[in-house]
Amino acid sequence: MEVRRIQILKEGLEVAIVHTLREGNKLADFMSNIVFSFTSTNFTYYNNFQELPTEAKTILNMDKSQIPNLRIRRIQNENYAQDR
């Protein structure tokens, strides 16, 4: 149903829908994790930059400075370390 609704909404418009990895929008990922970490129904509002959590400010400043967010994965192959 949701896909059909999106198709209806984009009819007659030039729309491009693309997937962005978590690293591509690290601030949105961080903020969504804050939302899901609260168990109460109270909402938290951030009205300006100074009210943001420190980590959110860091992510935002890195984004403004165009510093890339890299995903670093640990090598799964145990033999790799022994070969070196």
Rank of each mutant, 00 (worst) to 15 (best):
Ser37Pro: 00
Ser37Arg: 08
Phe38Lys: 13
Phe38His: 13
Phe38Glu: 15
Phe38Asn: 07
Thr39Asn: 08
Thr39Trp: 09
Thr39Ala: 03
Ser40Phe: 00
Thr41Tyr: 06
Thr41Gln: 08
Asn42Val: 11
Asn42Tyr: 09
Asn42Gln: 14
Asn42Arg: 12
Phe43His: 08
Phe43Arg: 15
Phe43Asn: 09
Phe43Pro: 04
Phe43Thr: 11
Thr44Pro: 01
Thr44Ala: 10
Thr44Lys: 11
Thr44Ile: 15
Thr44Tyr: 05
Thr44Trp: 07
Tyr45Met: 06
Tyr46Ser: 05
Tyr46Lys: 03
Tyr46Asn: 04
Tyr46Trp: 11
Asn47His: 12
Asn47Gln: 09
Asn47Ala: 02
Asn47Trp: 15
Asn47Gly: 06
Asn48His: 12
Asn48Lys: 08
Phe49Asn: 05
Phe49Leu: 07
Phe49Asp: 12
Phe49Arg: 10
Gln50Asn: 11
Gln50Arg: 11
Glu51Arg: 09
Glu51Asp: 14
Glu51Gly: 03
Leu52Met: 12
Leu52His: 08
Leu52Val: 06
Pro53Trp: 11
Pro53Ser: 10
Thr54Ser: 10
Thr54Met: 12
Thr54Val: 13
Glu55Ile: 10
Glu55Cys: 10
Glu55Gln: 15
Glu55Pro: 03
Glu55Ser: 07
Glu55Arg: 14
Glu55His: 12
Ala56Trp: 04
Ala56Tyr: 04
Ala56His: 04
Lys57Gly: 01
Thr58Arg: 15
Thr58Leu: 13
Thr58Asn: 13
Thr58Tyr: 12
Ile59Met: 04
Leu60Ser: 07
Leu60Met: 15
Leu60Ala: 14
Leu60Gln: 09
Asn61Thr: 12
Asn61Ser: 11
Asn61Val: 06
Asn61Gln: 15
Met62Tyr: 10
Met62Trp: 05
Met62Gly: 02
Met62Ile: 00
Met62Pro: 00
Asp63Ala: 15
Asp63Lys: 11
Asp63Trp: 05
Asp63Asn: 09
Lys64Phe: 01
Lys64His: 06
Lys64Tyr: 07
Ser65Trp: 03
Ser65Gly: 04
Ser65Gln: 14
Ser65Thr: 02
Gln66Trp: 00
Gln66Glu: 11
Ile67Phe: 03
Ile67His: 07
Ile67Thr: 09
Ile67Cys: 01
Pro68Ala: 02
Pro68Arg: 01
Pro68Tyr: 01
Pro68Phe: 00
Pro68Gln: 02
Pro68Leu: 01
Pro68Trp: 00
Asn69Ile: 11
Asn69Trp: 02
Asn69Gly: 01
Asn69Ala: 07
Asn69Arg: 03
Arg71His: 02
Arg71Cys: 01
Arg71Leu: 04
Arg71Asp: 05
Ile72Tyr: 01
Ile72Asp: 01
Ile72Trp: 01
Ile72Thr: 07
Ile72Pro: 00
Arg73Pro: 00
Arg74Gln: 08
Ile75Lys: 07
Ile75Arg: 10
Gln76Asn: 14
Gln76Met: 13
Gln76Ile: 10
Gln76Leu: 13
Asn77Glu: 08
Asn77Met: 04
Glu78Tyr: 07
Glu78Ala: 09
Glu78Val: 07
Glu78Arg: 12
Glu78Ser: 12
Asn79Lys: 11
Asn79Pro: 00
Tyr80Gly: 02
Tyr80Arg: 08
Tyr80Ala: 14
Tyr80Asp: 08
Tyr80Lys: 13
Ala81Arg: 12
Ala81Asn: 11
Ala81Lys: 13
Gln82Cys: 05
